[in-house]
Computed example of a mutant assay.
Amino acid sequence: MAENLSDQYSEESFWEKIKKFGKKAGSKVVYSALLLFYCMKDGNAPVWTKTVIIGALAYFISPIDAIPDLVPIVGYTDDLGALVAALGTVAAYINDDIRQKAKAKLADWFGPDSQDDVADIDDKFSK
């Protein structure tokens, strides 16, 4: 299943999903996805972390979910679960630079107050 999902991942589809559904998914889902995306792009992340990240981002992008994204209120809960599980696995490779890039992009989409909404994610996955 992971191979099938990873075949669905592309940077273009990642940005398309965030642009199209980011507001609906919410700042926590988007911030988690951005942390993973920027970690994957970081030159210090080993190959195995990129594999984990691609699997989680592919699940986020995939229209086939355990809970369909169009279901009101809970539609992105499974996506957040997959993203948070991947964050827990690769947390050691998420540095302050990655956090700053993710927060800057999040602020572009959700406004400067959005960083308050995601503080618990930073607290949970900080070194």
Results as ranks from 00 to 15, higher is better:
Ala2Val: 04
Ala2Trp: 12
Glu3Ile: 11
Glu3Phe: 03
Asn4Pro: 04
Asn4Ile: 15
Leu5Ile: 08
Asp7Arg: 15
Gln8Trp: 08
Gln8Gly: 11
Glu11Thr: 09
Glu12Met: 11
Trp15Ala: 00
Lys17Pro: 06
Ile18Cys: 12
Lys19Pro: 00
Lys19Thr: 01
Lys20Thr: 15
Gly22His: 13
Lys24Gly: 02
Lys24Asp: 14
Ala25Ser: 14
Val29Ile: 08
Val30Ser: 05
Tyr31Asn: 04
Ala33Ser: 11
Ala33His: 05
Ala33Trp: 03
Ala33Asn: 07
Ala33Pro: 06
Leu34Tyr: 15
Leu35Asn: 11
Leu36His: 04
Phe37Pro: 01
Cys39Arg: 09
Met40Pro: 01
Lys41Met: 11
Asp42Glu: 12
Asp42Met: 06
Asp42Ala: 13
Asn44Cys: 06
Asn44Trp: 00
Asn44His: 05
Ala45Arg: 01
Ala45Gly: 01
Pro46Glu: 07
Val47Gln: 14
Lys50Glu: 06
Lys50Ser: 07
Val52Thr: 15
Ile53Gln: 00
Ile53Ala: 00
Ile54Ser: 13
Ala56His: 06
Tyr59Cys: 03
Tyr59Gln: 03
Tyr59Ser: 02
Ser62Asn: 13
Ser62Phe: 02
Asp65Glu: 04
Ala66Glu: 14
Ala66Trp: 13
Ala66Ser: 08
Ile67Asn: 02
Pro68Ala: 11
Asp69Arg: 14
Asp69Tyr: 14
Leu70Pro: 01
Val71Phe: 05
Ile73Asn: 05
Val74Ser: 04
Tyr76His: 11
Asp78Ile: 01
Asp79Cys: 03
Gly81Trp: 06
Gly81Gln: 04
Gly81Arg: 05
Ala82Tyr: 07
Ala82Asn: 08
Leu83Ala: 07
Val84Asn: 01
Val84His: 00
Val84Asp: 02
Ala85Trp: 10
Ala86Phe: 03
Leu87Lys: 09
Gly88Met: 05
Thr89Met: 01
Thr89Leu: 01
Val90Ser: 04
Ala91His: 08
Ala91Asp: 07
Tyr93Gly: 01
Tyr93Asn: 09
Asn95Val: 02
Asp96Glu: 14
Asp97Gly: 14
Ile98Asp: 08
Ile98Met: 08
Ile98Thr: 14
Ile98Trp: 05
Arg99Tyr: 10
Gln100Ile: 04
Lys101Asp: 01
Ala102Thr: 12
Ala102Pro: 07
Lys103Ile: 02
Lys103Phe: 00
Ala104Arg: 08
Lys105Thr: 06
Leu106His: 04
Leu106Pro: 03
Ala107His: 03
Ala107Tyr: 01
Trp109Gln: 15
Trp109Val: 14
Phe110Glu: 09
Gly111Asn: 08
Asp113Cys: 02
Asp113Glu: 12
Asp113Ala: 11
Ser114Ala: 15
Ser114Lys: 09
Ser114Gln: 09
Ser114Arg: 10
Gln115Ala: 08
Gln115Leu: 15
Asp116Ala: 15
Asp116Val: 11
Asp117His: 11
Val118Asn: 07
Ala119Cys: 00
Ala119Glu: 13
Ala119Thr: 08
Ile121Phe: 10
Ile121Arg: 05
Asp122Ala: 12
Ser126Val: 04
Lys127Cys: 06
Lys127Gly: 09
